[in-house]
Amino acid sequence: MNNLIKTIFQRSFALNFPFIRSITSTPANRIKQIELHQENDTLTVKGKIVDSGRESLLLPEVTECKNKGVRFCPECSLNLHLKHTDVLILSQYIRKDGCMLPRRVTGLCKRQQRKIGTLVTMAHKAGLLHGYKPSWCTKLPNQRYKHKKFNTYFFENTIKLPKAHYKQNEPCK
């Protein structure tokens, strides 16, 4: 019986952790890092909160918004108009494989999530986020297929966004 449970566990861990939800004892079901330890017949699952290393470098406005419980967007809160060449800022909103993070992680309003997502796509197409890509992709930007290997730049005013549904002085949603 013990062995059977173990094999089920191992299989389910291979398939995107469907068992995680059923074994957590805390309300938060997503933790920063999950560690698996195997000792003889017992399998221990540890949820470890890892420091992101960004705490000390955060802008004071960001921590201010966090303490107030207000949403922080670079454009709505700071009036900072990003370009697709601002890779040092855009790279904070993406995963290691270059995907845009979801809105519950980035904490942006819907319009800004859409806009920054498009800016990330533009930066990828321009080959500026080289390194943030799936591990199987080994090509340099100038080795890409057909027209994609040549330098391209984009205009930020071509990004089509839905109308803002809030008034000018209201916080964004």
């Binding site: 920063k32 955060l58 992680v105 080289h130």
Partner: peptide, 26 residues
């Protein structure tokens, strides 16, 4: 424009951050 892999790691790490992961982020 500057490619991110041409920027030194020190500069990327010490650049001011405007986003931090939520505590329940996996």
């Amino acid at each position: 424009p500057q490619r991110i892999d041409h920027i030194e790691k020190d500069v990327i790490d010490n650049y001011p951050k405007i986003m931090d992961y939520p505590t329940d982020y996996l």
